[in-house]
Simulated assay, not measured.
Amino acid sequence: MDVEELRQRLQFEPSALPLSSHTLQACVIDFDKVDNALDWLEKDDNHHLICLSDPHYPPLLQQIYDPPSVLFIKGNLNALLPPSIAIVGSRSMSLHGADTAANLAISLSNQGFSITSGMAAGIDGAAHKAVVANNGMTLAVLGCGVDVIYPKRHKALYDNIQQNGCVISEFWPNVSPLAGHFPRRNRIVSGLSLGTVVVEAARKSGSLITARLAMEQNREVFAVPGSTVAGFHQGCHDLIKNGAKLVENAADIIEELGCLSQYHLEQLHQRHYIQDNEMSNLPFPSQLASLLTSVGYETTTIDAVVEHSGKPIDLVLVQLLELELQGWVTVVPGGYVRLKRS
């Protein structure tokens, strides 16, 4: 990509998607930094620069009111393909909150979702670390330049995320973390995701900004309840009172997002740069493969699937939903039918 091509891609077009005055201003200022951006882009094969008009631009993020005009990405670009769920929460998390975030992240990752968060201390870091340890895909959205590690204690996490996932920023390389950057970062966290899960949050927690932005973007908001005595969960309880779905496990989230996940995958298939083999490389956990053998090419009742698989019915229903989303089975009167061979 040369300088002129990059300039043309960054050019503001009134007929394109709606952009705010902030984005327009960023476009004007950023032209002076094109040469530096190109230098950064050429430093490593895992450096990527995606403009708003680029076909690789995440379709969900493209739909928000104020999409970033440019994204700087380090890591695996294919991590943008699976449907994503954001997990956010308090920086001062409890041990129970850390376990809850990790368990939700692993369960959702095993079902083929990527996990998006802000790589902050606390719940964000716990979610990222769990997915990395599980060899899943996680997206870390930064409130600084994509080459700046913040907080510094997450240096190893920053590097590990890039193996299967990626780190993302709308800020140009070498930009330091500033307080005003993080609310803008949060709109990308929620904008990349089908829904946002708040695990722990006090009433003044920054993660509530992400939840509010998700609501404004017409995305789902989920909250994990907790003790009414400790202050860790006050923000979550307020969200639930205001209409957020109460979450006890990953099945609660998947049940709510099933149709939206299907829409997201259909949108990805329509993107001309995505080939069938890319979609087939998305995570297909072994537990889904074992359940698939319980579904025949003729109508198979849910009772037969449960009996053959030996799994509890609630788990079977969740995994059948994921198989349906990935196009392996379909619902028919009386049960399920398998559509293709593994």
Rank of each mutant, 00 (worst) to 15 (best):
A105Q: 02
R184N: 09
R341Y: 11
T300E: 10
I188H: 09
S114D: 06
T116G: 04
D54T: 03
Q217D: 15
L192S: 07
A201C: 04
L282F: 04
G334F: 09
S280H: 11
I64S: 08
P333S: 02
S205N: 00
V198Y: 01
V88G: 01
I106Y: 00
A201T: 01
E256H: 06
L321T: 13
V221R: 08
H154I: 00
V132P: 04
I29V: 10
R153Y: 11
G335M: 04
E322G: 07
D30I: 06
R338K: 13
V34E: 07
P285M: 14
G235E: 00
V148P: 12
I50Q: 02
G296C: 02
D30G: 09
S205L: 02
T138K: 08
P225Q: 03
M93N: 13
L17A: 12
L52H: 07
C144L: 07
T116W: 04
G206Q: 04
A120C: 07
G180M: 05
W328K: 14
M279S: 08
D35W: 05
M93L: 11
L19F: 02
V306P: 13
V329T: 07
T293D: 14
H269N: 15
H96A: 10
F113S: 05
G122E: 05
V332H: 02
S69K: 15
G334S: 02
N281R: 11
D45I: 05
D2R: 12
S207P: 00
L317T: 07
G310T: 01
C144V: 06
N78Q: 13
Y65G: 12
M119D: 07
S342K: 13
P67S: 09
A105F: 04
G231Y: 01
I123C: 01
S107M: 07
S20C: 03
A244S: 08
I123W: 00
I64V: 14
F222H: 00
L291F: 12
R187H: 08
S190N: 07
A16T: 05
D66A: 04
A16M: 09
M137Y: 12
L71T: 09
Q63K: 15
G195E: 04
N242C: 05
A120R: 06
R341H: 14
N134D: 15
F113V: 03
D159R: 10
G195C: 02
F182Q: 11
E278H: 14
Q326K: 15
H22I: 07
E256K: 09
F113L: 06
P225F: 05
G180I: 04
A211P: 00
S109W: 03
L213D: 12
A133I: 08
I106A: 03
K155V: 13
S261R: 15
A102N: 06
R184T: 12
G334L: 03
I85C: 00
R338L: 03
R203M: 14
L325N: 15
S190D: 06
F113C: 05
N78S: 12
G231M: 03
P225L: 03
I313V: 15
R219Q: 11
P18H: 01
Y65W: 14
L213W: 01
L6Q: 04
N218H: 15
M119T: 05
L77R: 09
V295C: 06
N160H: 10
L49P: 09
A37V: 06
H308L: 15
